[in-house]
Amino acid sequence: MSETHSDEPHGAGLGQKLNWLRAGVLGANDGIVSVASLVVGVAGATTDNSALLVAGVAGLVGGAISMALGEYVSVSSQRDTERALIEKERDELRTMPAEELDELTELYRQRGLSEDTARQVAVELTEHDALAAHLEVELGIDQDDLVNPWHAAISSAIAFTIGALLPLLAILLPPVEWRVPVTFVAVLIALAATGTISARIGGASPVRASLRLVVGGALALVATWLIGTLLGSTGVV
């Protein structure tokens, strides 16, 4: 009896899901680190709530817009490249179908099929949908599942905002003497969580991914706090 594994990623839409998941995790991580570094740096220089609030909100808004714009431009470039490759393949199929059939046969032969079997598979797939067959085998592209720049941009902006709210609240809500320690702890826990999520999406080691983010985030927080403390003690701010 065959068994269906419903938790395995199959079918159309996988590329889109991975696209916005990737953008979301990266956006949350950037929101946590950048805004936490900003407010911790300001907290090292001053205890004024207004200064912390202005710095945190400015970092949140500016960062969210920047992340969204960056993702939109990056993913748009990727989609434009994919569309260009699709048009090129479509033109080749129209102008030299025999050569393309031979190419598809050879690609399947390189995957371990015998010459006769590879030829039969290539012929049958060409008769069914030649363009889809060539895009999948040659380029790894699904023309019905191209990346969407708007999905990536919106996901990244929302995730950045959510991630940025954590250090902003952590620095504003506790008593003055607990602000920096609470923010450190909250940020490092959040970074460990996003590292685990990103590792599971990419099939990597959660421990290694989390450790990289935690160490990097801790270094950023320490550096900005020291700079803020130094500037505050010298009377620059």
Score class of each variant (00 low, 15 high):
Gly217Asp: 01
Leu211Glu: 02
Ala192Thr: 11
Val35His: 00
Gly41Tyr: 03
Ile65Gln: 02
Lys17Gly: 07
Gly216Val: 01
Leu166Val: 12
Pro9Tyr: 13
Ala193Pro: 01
Glu124Tyr: 00
Ser114Lys: 10
Leu38Asn: 04
Thr194Pro: 03
Gln143Ile: 03
Leu139Asp: 00
Glu138Tyr: 09
Arg109Asn: 05
Ala43Tyr: 02
Gly56Cys: 01
Pro9Val: 13
Thr234Gly: 08
Ala51Ser: 14
Gly140Ile: 13
Leu221His: 05
Gly235Cys: 02
Leu38Ile: 05
Ile158His: 11
Ile86Pro: 04
Arg83Thr: 15
Thr161Gln: 04
Val214Ala: 12
Asp144Ile: 06
Arg111Ser: 15
Arg200Asp: 00
Ser6Pro: 10
Ser34Cys: 09
Ala12Trp: 05
Asp7Lys: 14
Asn148Ala: 10
Ala186Glu: 04
Gly140Gln: 08
Gly232Tyr: 11
Val40Tyr: 06
Arg109Cys: 08
Arg79Ser: 15
Phe160Met: 12
Glu127Asp: 10
Asp144Glu: 12
Val39Trp: 10
Asp48Trp: 07
Leu113Asn: 01
Ala122Trp: 13
Ala199Arg: 03
Val73Tyr: 08
Ser34Phe: 10
Ser210Phe: 10
Asn148Leu: 04
Met96Ala: 15
Val54Thr: 09
Ala64Tyr: 11
Arg90Ala: 12
His10Cys: 00
Met96Lys: 15
Gln16Trp: 07
Pro206Thr: 10
Ile65Trp: 11
Ser6Asn: 14
Asp129Ile: 05
Leu219Tyr: 03
Glu99His: 07
Thr229Val: 02
Val54Leu: 15
Ile158Asn: 07
Asp7Trp: 15
Glu71Arg: 06
Gly11Met: 07
Gln143Leu: 06
